[in-house]
Structure formats: structure tokens, C-alpha cells
Simulated assay, not measured.
Amino acid sequence: MIYKFKSKAAGDVIMMEPSGDHVLRIIGKVPAPKGIIEPADMPAAIQAIERAIVDEENARKQAEADAAAEGRSLPPREAVTLRQRAWPLVDMMKRAHADDKEIVWGV
């Protein structure tokens, strides 16, 4: 499945299912073929994504430090981080919230 997030305040954001599901779970939504993010919910959603990004980056730094202390190396990190995957949707939420417009997908 492909998620196509749409809002009257910004251009469309497209995500493949694994990334879309992950981001929706972060913001407290159940992954589904159709959905909506209301403007009132956007500040908390943005904060949840930003917190998840920091948590992911801190976990990687800690894993690298632990590996270095044990004299081993970690496999390379994923090619695309959560920060990179989520940024377009966070930007869309900021624009949509400023214009008091919802974000929908699957409609």
C-alpha cells in the first residue's frame, strides 16, 4: 500500500506502507487505508514525531558507544533515517495547522 497524505495547505506527501505505518503509530493513529489528522491534533503529532526522531538518534549513538567500548562495530545504519522520512509530513502538518486545514489519506 502507498500512503498519499493530502492537504489544501501543502503539496501531497507519499510514503510506502512500512514508513507510513510507522509514522502513524508514532502519532497515535492506527494504520488504515483511510484517515484524517485534524488541525487541533497536529501540534501533539509533530511533537511525538520529533521526540521519536531524538529517541532514534540517541539510541544509535548509545549503540555506537557500547559497540566501541566492546571493540566491535555496528552494521551501517539504515540508508534513510526517521528524520528524513518524516520531515515532509512534519512540514505538511506545520503548514496545515497554520492554515487550519486537515490532512487526509485514502480519500
Rank of each mutant, 00 (worst) to 15 (best):
D66L: 11
A69L: 01
A59G: 03
A96C: 07
V54H: 14
A96Q: 05
I46M: 09
T81K: 11
R72F: 11
P76Y: 02
R85S: 12
Q62D: 14
Q62K: 13
V90W: 08
A98W: 10
A98H: 15
E64Q: 09
H97I: 11
I49P: 02
A52P: 00
A98D: 15
L89P: 07
N58H: 13
I49D: 02
E70Y: 10
A48I: 04
G71F: 12
I53P: 04
T81S: 14
R72S: 10
A96F: 02
I53F: 02
A67S: 06
E64D: 12
L89S: 00
W87C: 12
A65F: 01
M92W: 01
P76N: 02
I49H: 08
R85P: 06
M93K: 05
R60P: 01
D55W: 08
L89C: 06
A63R: 04
T81V: 07
A69M: 00
P88W: 04
I49W: 00
K94F: 04
A65K: 08
A65D: 14
K94Y: 06
E64I: 10
E70F: 14
Q62T: 15
R51H: 08
V54P: 09
V80M: 13
A48S: 02
D91K: 09
D91S: 11
E70P: 07
A69Q: 00
G71T: 07
E64S: 09
A96K: 07
D91L: 09
V54T: 15
Q84E: 14
W87P: 11
R51N: 09
A44G: 10
A65Y: 02
M92V: 01
N58E: 15
